Amino acid sequence: MSKELLYVFGTTGCGKTSCIKQPRLNYPVFEVTGHGRLEFADLVGHLTIKDGNMAFEHGPLALAMQYGAILLLNEIDLTSPEIAAGLNSVLDGSLLYIAENGGEIIPPHPMFRFVATKNTNDGGDNTGL
């Protein structure tokens, strides 16, 4: 599988996210905003109760991989190192293994893409804002 990854950085409000979500691309997008409490399970999915029964609900990463969509992770620099570690194998083109769903294995769809955005390129904010 060829890796189709994109990293976009720029000042707040410059259009990073809207560029990726451009309707003319006709490409489905699952969008997540990074923050300090985000866990890898929030991306993969979790057990939930539906109609009185436990059921697994796929998260945006699993859905994007299954259906050939873009996973847009905004503010990736605000996520914990555990998120980056969890994404390593997926971004290398490996299968997604979901132990919590009976060992489900999701191969990456050929159209699956990953995009990360953040406001600086690790050089600090030069705008003074």
Rank of each mutant, 00 (worst) to 15 (best):
M111Q: 13
G36S: 01
S89G: 02
I83W: 03
G86P: 01
N53G: 11
A99K: 11
T127K: 05
S18P: 08
P108D: 02
L96C: 14
L43G: 08
L129Y: 08
L129I: 06
C19S: 14
I70Q: 05
H35L: 05
F112K: 02
F56Y: 15
A84Q: 01
D92K: 13
E100Q: 15
E75Y: 07
E4F: 13
T12S: 15
L87G: 01
G102K: 11
P110A: 11
A116D: 01
N119T: 11
V29I: 04
T117P: 03
T11L: 08
E104R: 12
S18A: 13
G59E: 01
V32C: 05
D125M: 09
V90I: 15
N26M: 10
E75A: 00
S2W: 00
Q66C: 14
M1W: 03
V29P: 04
E82N: 09
G86T: 04
L61D: 09
R113V: 03
K50V: 13
G10P: 04
T17G: 03
I83T: 06
L43E: 09
G45W: 07
G36V: 05
G36C: 04
P81D: 14
V115F: 00
N119F: 09
I76M: 06
F9C: 09
D92L: 13
G15N: 09
S94R: 10
P110Q: 09
H58N: 07
V8E: 02
